[in-house]
Design a protein around this nucleic acid. Structure first.
Length: 320
DNA sequence: ATCCGGTTAAAGTAGCGTCA
DNA sequence: TGACGCTACTTTAACCGGAT
């Protein structure tokens, strides 16, 4: 039963035979389908038409017993995850089960995401470590399920996480220093935002932002501490060399600021340097004002404490 | 309803260079 | 020399829209 190894086109066409009693899909070469026709005699070619298959008496009952539940499960999954339902997709039942596993264990897999070969041999053990490299279509679906832009480089030292919340028609691109906003992707989707994770030293993935996207507004959302603002300076420089100007999301006031030595925070200001060593030319007057206040009070503002939508609204970037 | 032709996506294949 | 990887070309079939 598990070895019938039907691909999605076969499942789809067999379902079409169940619903409409006929299909034009070319599925006869498949041993399982061939067996349905030649041994079980539950389907047959339509007389006079060489490419149309029709259902025969008994097919409905057979389908309901052996195929219907699988089809419904896969159909529901693909629909839920907005995956392409077309019969061009070449994944089989094994792959579909793997997709569902990936979706169910998305966070864990993302945490441990390493190289494409490692992932392939872990999740597609039976198909080998090179399976995903040779099947870009299936790889693309995994990216979509995991909501990543790609696997990190071969070199484990070069762990470039490429988390993205895509929108087909974004109004604005938000570069995020932290994952917090990317963990609430529905907010971005509802409001036509595209989110890119550029935390840590992930700035090289900015090269991946397509030229077509450069016409949109790009804003950076970060912790207001030395590390976050340093990244902003670097990103602004990168985009500036492409002739693109970006801005930073400015919290409305210092009200949400917390002491610099709070838990798990180790980005200290450098009070001995003017503006903590940041390049003053990068910032606007109101941004400079907030930075100097934070330095003076030895505080910082956590990105997670700010609501992305109201930040965008208060910065005049969207209307809700 | 069937056929057809253009477009698109994916898989298979063959040719070529690299490296041990 | 053989294993491997990269790439470009070919093949196949689905899909879509228009014609018969």
């Amino acid at each position: 039963m598990k070895h019938r190894n039907l691909k999605w086109p076969h499942l789809k066409a067999l379902h079409e035979l169940y619903e409409n009693e006929s299909t034009n899909a070319r599925i006869l070469e498949h041993p399982f389908v061939k067996n349905l026709k030649e041994d079980k005699r539950l389907i047959a070619l339509k007389p006079g038409i060489t490419r149309t298959l029709v259902a025969k008496p008994g097919y409905r009952a057979y389908y309901e017993q052996h195929l219907h539940n699988s089809y419904l499960r896969y159909y529901q999954f693909l629909t839920q995850h907005h995956l392409d339902l077309s019969a061009r997709q070449q994944f089989d039942e094994f792959d579909l089960d793997a997709f569902i596993f990936i979706a169910d264990n998305k966070e864990e897999l993302r945490e441990r995401l390493s190289t494409i070969r490692h992932f392939s041999s872990l999740v597609f053990r039976e198909k080998g470590s090179k399976f995903l490299e040779k099947h870009p279509g299936i790889c693309k679906i995994i990216y979509q399920l995991l909501e990543v832009q790609g696997f990190p480089d071969q070199d484990p030292k070069n762990n470039q996480w490429r988390f993205v919340v895509d929108h087909p028609n974004p109004r604005i691109i938000v570069l995020c220093e932290n994952l917090a906003n990317l963990k609430r992707p529905w907010i971005a989707r509802e409001h036509q935002l595209e989110l890119w994770y550029v935390g840590g030293n992930n700035t090289t993935i900015l090269e991946q932002i397509g030229a077509d996207k450069l016409t949109l507004s790009i804003v950076y959302c970060c912790d207001w501490d030395l590390a976050g603002l340093r990244i902003y300076c670097r990103i602004k420089q990168i985009f500036s060399s492409k002739g693109k100007s970006i801005s930073i999301l400015l919290p409305p006031d210092v009200g949400d600021a917390i002491p610099i030595s709070s838990q798990d925070h180790n980005s200290l200001w450098l009070p001995e340097l003017p503006l903590s060593g940041l390049d003053a030319d990068v910032f606007t007057a109101s941004e400079l004002s907030l930075i100097t206040q934070l330095i003076a009070r030895n505080k910082w503002i956590e990105e997670e404490s700010q609501d992305l939508l109201s930040l965008l609204q208060k910065n005049g970037l969207i209307t809700i």
